[in-house]
Design a protein around this nucleic acid. Sequence first.
DNA 1: GTGTTTGCAAACGTTTTGCACAGGT
DNA 2: ACCTGTGCAAAACGTTTGCAAACAC
Lengths: 147, 147
Amino acid sequence: MPSNKIRRNTPQRMVILQELCATKEHPTAAELFAAVRRKLPRVSLGTIYRNLEVLHEDGFVRKLELAGHETRFDGTTAPHYHVRCTSCGCVRDLPAPLHDKLVTQPVDSAGFRIDGHRLEFYGLCPGCQQGDMGRMPVPDMPEHGSH
Amino acid sequence: MPSNKIRRNTPQRMVILQELCATKEHPTAAELFAAVRRKLPRVSLGTIYRNLEVLHEDGFVRKLELAGHETRFDGTTAPHYHVRCTSCGCVRDLPAPLHDKLVTQPVDSAGFRIDGHRLEFYGLCPGCQQGDMGRMPVPDMPEHGSH
DNA sequence: GTGTTTGCAAACGTTTTGCACAGGT
DNA sequence: ACCTGTGCAAAACGTTTGCAAACAC
Protein backbone atom coordinates (compact mmCIF):
# COMPACT_ATOMS: atom_id res chain seq x y z
CA MET A 1 0.00 0.00 0.00
CA PRO A 2 2.04 2.94 -1.31
CA SER A 3 1.63 5.97 0.90
CA ASN A 4 0.34 9.22 -0.60
CA LYS A 5 3.15 11.21 0.98
CA ILE A 6 5.55 13.06 -1.27
CA ARG A 7 8.84 11.18 -1.38
CA ARG A 8 12.20 12.63 -2.19
CA ASN A 9 14.81 10.75 -4.11
CA THR A 10 17.74 11.25 -1.84
CA PRO A 11 21.06 9.60 -2.61
CA GLN A 12 20.76 7.65 0.63
CA ARG A 13 17.43 6.16 -0.36
CA MET A 14 18.60 5.25 -3.82
CA VAL A 15 21.82 3.62 -2.68
CA ILE A 16 19.97 1.60 -0.06
CA LEU A 17 17.52 0.24 -2.60
CA GLN A 18 20.30 -0.34 -5.08
CA GLU A 19 22.39 -2.30 -2.58
CA LEU A 20 19.38 -4.32 -1.53
CA CYS A 21 18.50 -5.24 -5.08
CA ALA A 22 22.09 -6.12 -5.91
CA THR A 23 22.22 -9.00 -3.45
CA LYS A 24 20.30 -12.18 -2.85
CA GLU A 25 21.48 -12.39 0.72
CA HIS A 26 18.53 -10.79 2.51
CA PRO A 27 20.71 -8.52 4.58
CA THR A 28 19.89 -7.15 8.01
CA ALA A 29 19.70 -3.42 8.59
CA ALA A 30 23.20 -3.52 10.06
CA GLU A 31 24.62 -5.36 7.07
CA LEU A 32 22.96 -2.91 4.73
CA PHE A 33 24.35 -0.10 6.84
CA ALA A 34 27.87 -1.43 6.31
CA ALA A 35 27.31 -1.82 2.57
CA VAL A 36 25.79 1.62 2.08
CA ARG A 37 28.49 3.22 4.17
CA ARG A 38 31.07 2.10 1.64
CA LYS A 39 29.43 4.43 -0.86
CA LEU A 40 28.13 7.09 1.49
CA PRO A 41 30.52 7.16 4.45
CA ARG A 42 28.38 9.54 6.48
CA VAL A 43 25.04 7.66 6.50
CA SER A 44 23.64 6.79 9.87
CA LEU A 45 21.93 3.61 10.94
CA GLY A 46 18.78 5.62 11.67
CA THR A 47 18.63 6.65 8.03
CA ILE A 48 18.86 3.01 6.99
CA TYR A 49 15.94 2.07 9.20
CA ARG A 50 13.83 5.05 8.18
CA ASN A 51 14.36 4.43 4.50
CA LEU A 52 13.75 0.72 4.73
CA GLU A 53 10.45 1.57 6.40
CA VAL A 54 9.55 4.02 3.65
CA LEU A 55 10.60 1.65 0.89
CA HIS A 56 8.56 -1.08 2.53
CA GLU A 57 5.52 1.17 2.79
CA ASP A 58 5.82 2.03 -0.88
CA GLY A 59 6.14 -1.62 -1.83
CA PHE A 60 9.76 -1.61 -2.95
CA VAL A 61 11.15 -3.96 -0.36
CA ARG A 62 9.91 -6.86 1.69
CA LYS A 63 10.51 -7.19 5.38
CA LEU A 64 11.44 -10.68 6.52
CA GLU A 65 10.61 -10.95 10.17
CA LEU A 66 11.83 -14.48 10.71
CA ALA A 67 11.22 -16.12 14.06
CA GLY A 68 13.62 -15.14 16.77
CA HIS A 69 16.00 -13.09 14.67
CA GLU A 70 16.59 -9.57 13.51
CA THR A 71 14.51 -8.40 10.58
CA ARG A 72 16.03 -9.03 7.17
CA PHE A 73 15.17 -7.24 3.98
CA ASP A 74 14.43 -8.47 0.51
CA GLY A 75 14.53 -6.44 -2.69
CA THR A 76 12.35 -8.99 -4.44
CA THR A 77 8.76 -8.17 -3.66
CA ALA A 78 7.13 -11.00 -5.58
CA PRO A 79 5.69 -13.50 -3.10
CA HIS A 80 7.97 -16.41 -2.28
CA TYR A 81 9.07 -18.32 0.79
CA HIS A 82 12.37 -18.59 2.61
CA VAL A 83 14.54 -21.23 4.25
CA ARG A 84 16.87 -20.58 7.12
CA CYS A 85 19.86 -22.77 7.81
CA THR A 86 19.80 -23.79 11.45
CA SER A 87 23.55 -24.23 11.40
CA CYS A 88 25.02 -21.14 9.76
CA GLY A 89 21.92 -18.94 9.89
CA CYS A 90 21.86 -18.00 6.22
CA VAL A 91 18.53 -17.30 4.55
CA ARG A 92 17.73 -18.29 0.97
CA ASP A 93 14.79 -17.94 -1.36
CA LEU A 94 12.71 -20.97 -2.15
CA PRO A 95 12.02 -21.20 -5.85
CA ALA A 96 8.72 -22.57 -7.12
CA PRO A 97 7.00 -21.40 -3.98
CA LEU A 98 3.25 -21.64 -4.30
CA HIS A 99 2.65 -25.12 -5.47
CA ASP A 100 0.05 -27.81 -5.15
CA LYS A 101 2.08 -29.22 -2.30
CA LEU A 102 2.02 -25.92 -0.52
CA VAL A 103 -1.58 -25.29 0.33
CA THR A 104 -2.04 -23.24 3.43
CA GLN A 105 -5.60 -22.70 4.48
CA PRO A 106 -6.61 -23.81 7.96
CA VAL A 107 -9.69 -25.97 7.91
CA ASP A 108 -10.97 -24.60 11.17
CA SER A 109 -9.96 -21.00 11.72
CA ALA A 110 -11.37 -20.63 15.24
CA GLY A 111 -13.71 -17.89 14.09
CA PHE A 112 -10.92 -15.74 12.69
CA ARG A 113 -11.15 -14.16 9.28
CA ILE A 114 -7.86 -15.37 7.84
CA ASP A 115 -6.13 -12.72 5.78
CA GLY A 116 -2.90 -14.53 5.12
CA HIS A 117 -0.09 -16.55 6.52
CA ARG A 118 3.60 -16.48 7.08
CA LEU A 119 5.53 -19.61 6.31
CA GLU A 120 9.21 -20.22 6.72
CA PHE A 121 11.24 -23.37 6.45
CA TYR A 122 14.34 -24.37 8.31
CA GLY A 123 16.95 -27.02 7.74
CA LEU A 124 20.53 -27.38 6.59
CA CYS A 125 21.91 -25.43 3.68
CA PRO A 126 23.96 -27.24 1.03
CA GLY A 127 27.22 -26.10 2.57
CA CYS A 128 26.32 -27.20 6.10
CA GLN A 129 25.16 -30.65 4.99
CA GLN A 130 28.70 -31.81 4.23
CA GLY A 131 29.01 -34.06 7.26
CA ASP A 132 30.46 -31.24 9.33
CA MET A 133 28.72 -31.60 12.64
CA GLY A 134 31.30 -29.39 14.29
CA ARG A 135 30.54 -26.32 12.26
CA MET A 136 30.22 -23.01 14.11
CA PRO A 137 26.74 -21.53 14.04
CA VAL A 138 27.83 -18.15 12.80
CA PRO A 139 25.69 -15.24 11.52
CA ASP A 140 22.72 -15.96 13.76
CA MET A 141 22.02 -18.48 16.43
CA PRO A 142 20.24 -21.65 15.36
CA GLU A 143 16.91 -22.63 16.81
CA HIS A 144 15.76 -25.43 19.00
CA GLY A 145 13.46 -27.59 16.85
CA SER A 146 9.66 -27.20 17.04
CA HIS A 147 7.72 -25.29 14.44
CA MET B 1 15.57 -32.41 23.36
CA PRO B 2 15.58 -32.67 27.16
CA SER B 3 18.93 -31.67 28.55
CA ASN B 4 20.88 -34.10 30.70
CA LYS B 5 21.52 -31.47 33.33
CA ILE B 6 20.18 -32.01 36.82
CA ARG B 7 17.13 -29.82 37.30
CA ARG B 8 15.74 -28.63 40.59
CA ASN B 9 12.07 -28.25 41.21
CA THR B 10 12.08 -24.80 42.68
CA PRO B 11 8.82 -23.10 43.60
CA GLN B 12 9.54 -20.44 40.98
CA ARG B 13 9.86 -23.00 38.22
CA MET B 14 6.73 -24.82 39.25
CA VAL B 15 4.59 -21.72 39.56
CA ILE B 16 5.76 -20.50 36.17
CA LEU B 17 4.80 -23.76 34.50
CA GLN B 18 1.56 -23.89 36.43
CA GLU B 19 0.58 -20.37 35.39
CA LEU B 20 1.50 -21.09 31.82
CA CYS B 21 -0.59 -24.25 31.69
CA ALA B 22 -3.53 -22.55 33.35
CA THR B 23 -4.08 -20.11 30.51
CA LYS B 24 -4.74 -20.33 26.79
CA GLU B 25 -3.54 -16.80 26.23
CA HIS B 26 0.06 -17.49 25.20
CA PRO B 27 1.47 -14.90 27.54
CA THR B 28 4.69 -12.95 27.05
CA ALA B 29 7.48 -13.19 29.59
CA ALA B 30 6.35 -9.89 31.08
CA GLU B 31 2.75 -11.07 31.43
CA LEU B 32 3.91 -14.27 33.03
CA PHE B 33 6.12 -12.24 35.33
CA ALA B 34 3.10 -10.28 36.54
CA ALA B 35 1.08 -13.45 37.04
CA VAL B 36 3.81 -15.30 38.92
CA ARG B 37 4.53 -12.27 41.05
CA ARG B 38 1.03 -12.47 42.48
CA LYS B 39 2.00 -15.78 44.04
CA LEU B 40 5.71 -15.18 44.58
CA PRO B 41 6.08 -11.44 45.13
CA ARG B 42 9.87 -11.53 45.06
CA VAL B 43 10.49 -13.24 41.70
CA SER B 44 12.55 -11.37 39.20
CA LEU B 45 12.05 -11.08 35.49
CA GLY B 46 15.41 -12.73 34.94
CA THR B 47 14.16 -15.82 36.73
CA ILE B 48 11.15 -15.94 34.45
CA TYR B 49 13.34 -15.84 31.37
CA ARG B 50 15.81 -18.38 32.70
CA ASN B 51 13.12 -20.82 33.67
CA LEU B 52 11.20 -20.47 30.45
CA GLU B 53 14.42 -21.31 28.66
CA VAL B 54 14.97 -24.39 30.83
CA LEU B 55 11.37 -25.52 30.50
CA HIS B 56 11.62 -25.07 26.76
CA GLU B 57 14.84 -27.08 26.61
CA ASP B 58 13.20 -29.87 28.56
CA GLY B 59 10.18 -29.87 26.30
CA PHE B 60 7.61 -28.51 28.75
CA VAL B 61 6.81 -25.28 26.99
CA ARG B 62 6.75 -24.02 23.45
CA LYS B 63 8.26 -20.75 22.41
CA LEU B 64 6.16 -18.77 19.97
CA GLU B 65 8.46 -16.42 18.15
CA LEU B 66 5.88 -14.74 16.00
CA ALA B 67 7.06 -12.31 13.37
CA GLY B 68 7.91 -8.89 14.65
CA HIS B 69 6.70 -9.31 18.21
CA GLU B 70 7.93 -10.35 21.62
CA THR B 71 8.19 -14.06 22.19
CA ARG B 72 5.10 -15.68 23.64
CA PHE B 73 4.94 -18.96 25.48
CA ASP B 74 2.63 -21.92 25.21
CA GLY B 75 2.12 -24.64 27.80
CA THR B 76 0.69 -26.95 25.15
CA THR B 77 3.58 -28.70 23.49
CA ALA B 78 1.58 -30.78 21.02
CA PRO B 79 2.13 -29.40 17.53
CA HIS B 80 -0.46 -26.92 16.37
CA TYR B 81 -0.55 -23.59 14.59
CA HIS B 82 -1.49 -20.11 15.69
CA VAL B 83 -3.40 -17.11 14.41
CA ARG B 84 -2.63 -13.55 15.34
CA CYS B 85 -5.25 -10.84 15.16
CA THR B 86 -3.83 -7.92 13.19
CA SER B 87 -6.17 -5.56 15.02
CA CYS B 88 -5.94 -6.37 18.71
CA GLY B 89 -2.81 -8.51 18.59
CA CYS B 90 -4.22 -11.52 20.42
CA VAL B 91 -2.90 -14.98 19.58
CA ARG B 92 -5.09 -18.08 19.47
CA ASP B 93 -4.57 -21.74 18.81
CA LEU B 94 -5.80 -23.20 15.57
CA PRO B 95 -7.66 -26.43 16.16
CA ALA B 96 -7.46 -29.29 13.66
CA PRO B 97 -4.01 -28.16 12.65
CA LEU B 98 -2.31 -30.74 10.48
CA HIS B 99 -4.82 -31.52 7.83
CA ASP B 100 -4.91 -32.53 4.23
CA LYS B 101 -5.31 -28.88 3.37
CA LEU B 102 -2.22 -28.00 5.30
CA VAL B 103 0.59 -29.71 3.50
CA THR B 104 3.84 -27.89 3.74
CA GLN B 105 6.68 -29.38 1.81
CA PRO B 106 8.46 -27.20 -0.68
CA VAL B 107 8.76 -28.87 -4.05
CA ASP B 108 12.14 -27.36 -4.71
CA SER B 109 14.15 -26.83 -1.58
CA ALA B 110 17.15 -25.09 -3.16
CA GLY B 111 19.45 -27.85 -2.00
CA PHE B 112 18.48 -27.47 1.64
CA ARG B 113 17.68 -30.47 3.78
CA ILE B 114 14.33 -29.32 5.13
CA ASP B 115 13.86 -30.20 8.79
CA GLY B 116 10.62 -28.41 9.39
CA HIS B 117 8.67 -25.26 8.98
CA ARG B 118 7.06 -22.51 10.95
CA LEU B 119 3.62 -21.39 9.92
CA GLU B 120 1.51 -18.66 11.39
CA PHE B 121 -1.72 -17.16 10.22
CA TYR B 122 -3.01 -13.65 10.61
CA GLY B 123 -6.39 -12.08 10.26
CA LEU B 124 -9.20 -10.68 12.37
CA CYS B 125 -10.34 -12.35 15.57
CA PRO B 126 -14.06 -12.85 16.15
CA GLY B 127 -14.25 -9.79 18.40
CA CYS B 128 -12.49 -7.49 15.95
CA GLN B 129 -14.66 -8.55 13.00
CA GLN B 130 -17.73 -6.75 14.34
CA GLY B 131 -17.62 -3.90 11.88
CA ASP B 132 -15.50 -1.77 14.22
CA MET B 133 -12.94 -0.28 11.87
CA GLY B 134 -12.05 2.30 14.48
CA ARG B 135 -10.82 -0.19 17.02
CA MET B 136 -7.54 0.56 18.77
CA PRO B 137 -4.76 -1.85 17.94
CA VAL B 138 -3.87 -2.55 21.52
CA PRO B 139 -1.57 -5.28 22.93
CA ASP B 140 0.77 -5.32 19.96
CA MET B 141 1.04 -3.37 16.77
CA PRO B 142 -0.60 -4.84 13.68
CA GLU B 143 1.43 -5.66 10.60
CA HIS B 144 1.55 -4.36 7.09
CA GLY B 145 0.23 -7.19 4.88
CA SER B 146 2.65 -9.44 3.00
CA HIS B 147 3.50 -12.95 4.16
C1' DG C 1 10.36 28.68 0.76
C1' DT C 2 8.40 24.65 2.32
C1' DG C 3 8.42 20.37 4.21
C1' DT C 4 10.96 16.03 3.87
C1' DT C 5 15.14 13.89 5.14
C1' DT C 6 19.45 13.74 7.33
C1' DG C 7 23.15 12.77 11.13
C1' DC C 8 23.72 12.37 15.67
C1' DA C 9 22.79 10.76 20.08
C1' DA C 10 19.79 9.41 23.35
C1' DA C 11 15.90 6.44 24.51
C1' DC C 12 13.27 2.45 23.96
C1' DG C 13 11.48 -2.49 24.92
C1' DT C 14 12.91 -7.05 25.21
C1' DT C 15 16.12 -10.27 26.57
C1' DT C 16 20.60 -11.67 28.54
C1' DT C 17 24.22 -11.67 31.85
C1' DG C 18 27.56 -11.05 36.05
C1' DC C 19 27.55 -11.42 40.59
C1' DA C 20 27.11 -12.73 45.45
C1' DC C 21 23.92 -15.14 48.13
C1' DA C 22 20.15 -18.58 49.04
C1' DG C 23 18.65 -23.01 48.99
C1' DG C 24 17.66 -27.94 46.89
C1' DT C 25 19.62 -32.42 46.85
C1' DA D 1 29.27 -29.89 50.56
C1' DC D 2 28.17 -29.18 46.14
C1' DC D 3 26.43 -26.77 42.54
C1' DT D 4 21.92 -25.15 40.59
C1' DG D 5 18.94 -21.46 41.02
C1' DT D 6 17.76 -16.82 42.76
C1' DG D 7 17.29 -11.59 43.04
C1' DC D 8 19.19 -7.62 41.67
C1' DA D 9 21.12 -4.46 38.65
C1' DA D 10 23.54 -3.52 34.69
C1' DA D 11 24.39 -4.49 30.01
C1' DA D 12 23.34 -6.05 25.46
C1' DC D 13 20.68 -6.05 21.45
C1' DG D 14 17.90 -4.39 17.62
C1' DT D 15 15.16 -0.64 16.71
C1' DT D 16 12.94 3.95 17.23
C1' DT D 17 12.79 8.83 18.12
C1' DG D 18 13.78 14.02 19.12
C1' DC D 19 16.21 17.53 17.41
C1' DA D 20 18.50 21.13 14.67
C1' DA D 21 20.68 21.48 10.38
C1' DA D 22 20.73 20.17 5.39
C1' DC D 23 18.69 19.68 1.22
C1' DA D 24 15.22 18.13 -2.55
C1' DC D 25 11.60 19.94 -4.85
